[in-house]
Nucleic acid binder design. Structure first.
Lengths: 215, 215
DNA sequence: ACATACAATGAATATTGATTCATTCTTTAT
DNA sequence: ATAAAGAATGAATCAATATTCATTGTATGT
């Protein structure tokens, strides 16, 4: 035996794999999955096209991983927003606001996660992602119901409705500027008042949906 | 001039065009857009593949037309459900129920319209379709607000949330049975009680979202 | 019957990236 | 230095349909 994988090699490979992943992630966050063909990802990572396949099963698998990573970050934020000892309803409110604000702050990635047309393997991740959100929401709703601060309801369906309402109302504003449509005004992040105008009514609707209470 | 299109010919062509359209529509309604490759549509219509292009600009254009037709039928139903002289809120309720019931009754087409991955040209129609629903809903909400039976709100965003909540909560049940998932139980249409269990909580959420009133 | 203009045909071509794999480096151990 | 075992390369291949177009068929008017 004249060759055996050494630690140095293992590290180098891990490094390259990471570099490929990072480049894919970056390209997606800058222009969506559409913006990340394998050959460009490879080029940017400084490896040959074929080398990508030494580290990832397929393009779909690489992208599924990118999707999962991006998703996990968002889910963690929501999960954090849901902890605390305020009443269930205000924790839910924090979480929804967190979700919407972050989406508007990183609109390209948010659009990719929510609405960009993707490979079926990645779509599968998207379903998981939506289900995960719904599960988080469902849990708080149940807490609220048990605590008596929320009315009895089908918590699972309410949670699913929340995810849908949020996604649908953000898709429009997040959609990449169309060449056909009039130039989109996406005011600077400094001026956050337009965000409020968008987000608050959505949250009003959602809060009322779960609580049955006017705000 | 030894040839001029005669009435007879005009009719025959219209007939063929219609037949192609109908076959495409049928295939979509039975198995989604995925189930309607041009060559099979042509075969079923009894014409050559190439002939389809004599009647439709492209596959995307044919499908956009199919999408529009299917959509228009649904929109009409909703529009009808929204007329009447009951209060705005109960008309809205009728419309939402109508939408959901019809979707569950024709789950394949509903899934295609709501969630099947499609060509960008068709996706464009889908956005129109969703916008149209939102516009209908928005109008009733505004009526309710003006009549004083609904609280002030951003009617456009509320309407968008309604569309999202409805779509998201139906996607799951409508999704084509996965090979991976446990066999889906989609009970017979006769036994409609399971539909109620699904639909009523969705409507509760939606009604509460726009009215801020417990039901 | 004939010529002309159009319609229909369907096999061949185009498209668009993902994926492969024969070949060329690199690393390792003797 | 050398050979064995991998790793890296990137041009060639594949795949899956949509689309084209040279050829053949059909209706129309003289």
């Amino acid at each position: 035996m004249a060759y055996r994988e050494t630690e140095k090699m293992r590290l180098r490979k891990a490094e390259i794999r990471q570099r490929i992943f990072d480049c894919a992630y970056q390209r997606v966050s800058e222009g969506g999955f559409r913006n990340a063909p394998i050959n460009l990802v490879a080029e940017q990572a400084g490896v040959a096209t074929g080398s990508v396949y030494r580290h990832f099963e397929s393009k779909a698998e690489l992208f599924a991983e990118v999707f999962r990573r991006a998703t996990q970050i968002e889910l963690d934020k929501v999960a954090t927003a849901l902890t605390g000892d305020e009443p269930a309803l205000s924790r839910l409110e924090h979480a929804l606001r967190q979700f919407a604000e972050r989406a508007l702050r990183g609109p390209v990635m948010a659009w990719s996660l929510i609405a960009e047309p993707v490979d079926p393997r990645v779509e599968e991740e998207r379903l998981n992602y939506r289900r995960s959100y719904a599960e988080f929401f469902e849990r708080v709703i149940l807490e609220g119901v048990e605590a008596g601060s929320l009315p009895r309801q089908d918590a699972h369906l309410s949670a699913t409705c929340l995810v849908g309402a949020l996604a649908e109302s953000l898709v429009g504003p997040l959609s990449p500027p169309q060449q056909t449509a009039a130039a989109q005004h996406m005011p600077s992040a400094q001026d956050s008042s337009w965000q409020k105008v968008l987000i608050e009514p959505i949250i009003d609707f959602c809060m009322q949906g779960v609580s049955g209470q006017r705000r």
